[in-house]
Design a protein around this nucleic acid. Sequence first.
DNA 1: AGTGCCTGCGCG
DNA 2: AAAGCGCGCAGGCACT
Length: 577
Amino acid sequence: MSTTDAAATWSVVGRGTRDGSVVVVDLHADGSESARRIIDASTLTGEVNAAGAARRWVWSDTSRWYPALLRAGLQVSRCHDLRLCHAILRDSARAADAGDLRRHVEWDAAAIEAAPAAAQTLFDLESGATTAGAPDHIEDVLAEFARQRDALGAAHDPGPLRLLLAAESAGALVAAELYDAGVPWDVGVHDGILTEMLGERPGAGRLPTKIEGLAAEVRAALGDPTASLDSQPKLLRALHRVGVLAQSTSRWELAEHDHPAIAPLLAYKKLMRMYTANGWAWMQEWVGEGRFRPVYVPGGVVTGRWASSGGGALQLPRQLRPAVRADPGWVLIVADVAQLEPRMLAAMSGDTALADAARGTDLYAGIVSEGVVGTRQEAKIAVLGAMYGATTGDSGRLVPALRRAYPRAMGLVDHAARTGEDGGVVSTWLGRTSPPPSVAWRQIQDLAGTGDAGERDQARARRSARDRGRFTRNFIVQGTAAEWALAWLAELRQQLARLEPIPEEDAADRSGRVFSRRAHLAFFLHDEIIVHAPAAQAEAAAAAVRDAAARATTLLFGTFPIDVPLDLQITDDAAKG
DNA sequence: AGTGCCTGCGCG
DNA sequence: AAAGCGCGCAGGCACT
């Protein structure tokens, strides 16, 4: 075991030249190298242990390095994920001089790579097998880290951007930890919900009884015993034959027609959706040993939200929530923020009137009590319309009232929309910047600007400009909300990590997993988290959830008086949350 | 058999 | 078919 330099700030990890070797380079804050060690991949866990909690690990891609450490029972405190930070710095309008980063496209290619391979890692690490993704050789890693520090150092005001990079990297740690921990899942409850809803689990080649029954009802009502219900064009033709002249087969349109086939058809579609998306086959594939393990993709959405790849973590139907069950002797802490995005907008714009309406748990009720609109439902439609750029219908009609009452907040999103329409870029509160318009978009606008553009060219250009305006309008709000959520996650995982592990005999299992003896994050969905905690830690973990949210708000907005209230429940069943 | 697009619906 | 943003996934279907 080699020694580590306690004074060093960063430990940069990369692959060595020899197969299976790993190189760890300690750096001081000024970037100077203080130690360099060549080790076997299998001893990296020892290095991490010896380095202590304060160390920030720098690596190409958290999803390639961290899972193996977690499986070896180690949690790291902090990291700098070069792949994710590259994407932010490359585009950020607040990072001066990112040209050097843009030239190194090999760090972009990795981001385009599909799902992070949560399943590979330790084995590959030890065998020295190469995997696709960001460059991993230590010299490439050191060079990229230097470029990123240069881009940050040259920034006019690097503080917010530095915070964003730290939060993004912490999010990468959380994503790997969520996969390692999994969502505690009761397959018995899941099976019960499916059976109740769909009927008995069918044999091969058959559908559940209730689905078959509904299909028969629909076909009888259509007078066509062989009608296909799963092919949109065929179903549409069958409906037309009985006089239902719908344009599409979507639920909301079918509901407007009056025909005996409609009710069973809507029920059929609902059940079929559950059966195909989250039925027994899904359970078989994604749930094992009492844990649902979806694959999260941090930074997977341009706005900074996470995406998912596999398991559909972000689309888990509310109906299936009861299957999220704490282990015996454990509880769930289910917490979410109501109306996170308009709260972010109020704070970003410094709109104290909207911040006043946001005081307390229901922003929409606040808008009503300020007399801006008449009902809570109107307030909701107006706010969503304001953030999404609605121009017609109820929503578009209500937005002007908001514009009069909250000129600062509305001014900010309206300005973002105009910038987008003009082909410009916009940035979130911490500095994540929207991508520039595509070449195709530019061409459409340029063509419309020339003298010989036809009426259709003009119309197309206006439409695509407005489309982009709605995107940039929403980008600053959705992206800042994602930043708040990352800060919440980052604070929370640090606080949970400080909890004392419970005695071995009370552990959820004897696997030696990092999270079997301590409260841990189990689920994350944009503005909502679930923590799985030993009963003895329930109150401490809930306090951590609340405190982390408060700290996230302060971290982003300092002393600006914006409420970000949590709805928080401690329960053994996530559906009660 | 593999691909890429379309439709529809789940989530925020 | 949404009006009004951001996603992933399943099934059908046309194409290779």
